[in-house]
Design a protein around this nucleic acid. Structure first.
Lengths: 250, 250
DNA sequence: TAAAAATGATTGAGTTTGCGTGATACGGTC
DNA sequence: GACCGTATCACGCAAACTCAATCATTTTTA
């Protein structure tokens, strides 16, 4: 990638997020922090962004505080996501669900040779500049609060494709192994996702075992695998294993 | 191959990818890097591309990305976009094409009560946080350099919807009124867009009158309206009027 | 055939990049 | 306010990369 292109992307990334940390930008663009600092310095001189300690702000929308840039990493959830990313072999296709869980998986897919399909706008943003990854966006209505696409357009798009892996998030797994969700509107999309995938992997940290949710997404039997933590509720795990689901502990 | 042909191909390659490195171009065209450098130098002098360290960027001429680089005709183009935005009544639905032209229209739609449909990732970014606007994204393969979605998924999504207005960009309008585009891959998407809209509005500044392009998008008769500048080529304008297209001067 | 143009290889100069180092800024505690 | 640990920064350096100029060779033009 040309230096000028990279700098344009930095500006775009800042416009999208309002702000960005040096470390985050370096990771996203695949260069060292030193290079990012030099870019930021240059772009600041050109007036295309505002340099601040730790990163940079978008030039017009700079009213947001910089505090949340250095967001603390949730170590456990990240470990689950990393484990999930390791399941995928280069060349395969991956479908990523709505939610932060899927976003975390996407963060671990950088630089891999994969086809990624998603209706998750945060994933789109995360992988948009990764040239290794073939990225496919499902259509749909933008649901701002969830940074996702939903609706019949999404379901229709899902009918047109098929993938090797689906990584699914959840609001909770019931003691009988049923996968639940907190919002009705997502359920048809999730069901369509399950139909479009060879292997369905549920990602759930220990707080989801057991967990609640108003809407049933699927039966345990429809899952191929569940990635969770060693100290997740044993009874629910056993229920899953009995249903033929491989339970992986990260 | 003649040097002129090769240089045309370089420009075309940049239009397609947004940017290109010296090494990449040399490999693609089967000549040495020295020759590519000489070509780039010459093309830069002619204003057909922007030379940067390591390669070159496409210059604003088709309807391609990287708008922030060249702000020469910004004023005129923005006037056209504003005029276009005024055509829409609150409550209506608008389909926005790929390219910077459509992005400019989107910038003038902020705060309006509209439904906006797009495969333009720059538009998505622009309107993502605007709560007044119902935003619908078409599915498709991410085309990084153009910040857009293309492919059969996009076309399929377009078959599922219908809108009041379509705002179309172009690389040029031929003297006979035919609307052209510089890249083949977009044409099926643009045609599907035309089918999905009640009214088709073409946005074209004077540099597009008359203009070129390898691929024919549509006949003048398929347009409802053209928004352009007062000093755009009169012969072409007359040709459009004759075809029943309303020509609006901004 | 001779002049002109284009090409590819080479070379030394200029740029960019990543890493290490010591200096500086930040946030929390006393 | 003073202090301290952590994170961030600017600077310098070496390696890799890119560039413009030059020259010999090939191709095109007159």
């Amino acid at each position: 990638m040309l230096p000028k292109q990279r700098q344009d992307q930095i500006v775009r990334a800042l416009r999208a997020d309002g702000a960005g940390g040096v470390k985050v930008l370096a990771g996203k663009l695949g260069v060292s922090e030193a290079t990012i600092r030099r870019d930021l310095e240059q772009l600041h001189a050109e007036g295309r962004l505002t340099r601040v300690y730790g990163g940079a702000l978008a030039v017009d929308g700079g009213d947001e505080p910089f505090a949340d840039v250095n967001a603390v990493h949730a170590e456990e959830k990240d470990r689950i996501a990393r484990r999930a990313a390791e399941l995928v072999t280069d060349g395969e296709s991956v479908l990523l669900d709505i939610g932060t869980t899927a976003l975390r998986v996407a963060q671990h897919l950088h630089g891999r040779s994969l086809t990624v399909v998603t209706s998750n706008l945060a994933v789109l943003e995360e992988l948009q500049n990764d040239e290794q990854i073939e990225l496919i966006v499902l259509g749909g209505f933008v649901r701002r609060s969830y940074r996702s696409l939903v609706g019949y357009l999404t379901e229709e798009s899902l009918r047109q494709i098929h993938v090797d892996w689906l990584f699914l998030g959840t609001s909770g797994v019931r003691p009988d192994g049923r996968v639940m969700d907190s919002t009705m509107i997502e359920v048809p999309v999730k069901r369509a996702m399950i139909k479009a995938a060879d292997r369905v992997v549920l990602l759930a940290d220990r707080t989801k075992f057991p967990g609640h949710g108003v809407a049933r997404v699927c039966e345990p039997g429809e899952l191929t695998m569940v990635v969770t933590e060693p100290d997740a509720d044993e009874a629910t795990r056993a229920q899953l294993t009995e249903a033929g689901v491989e339970v992986v502990l990260a």
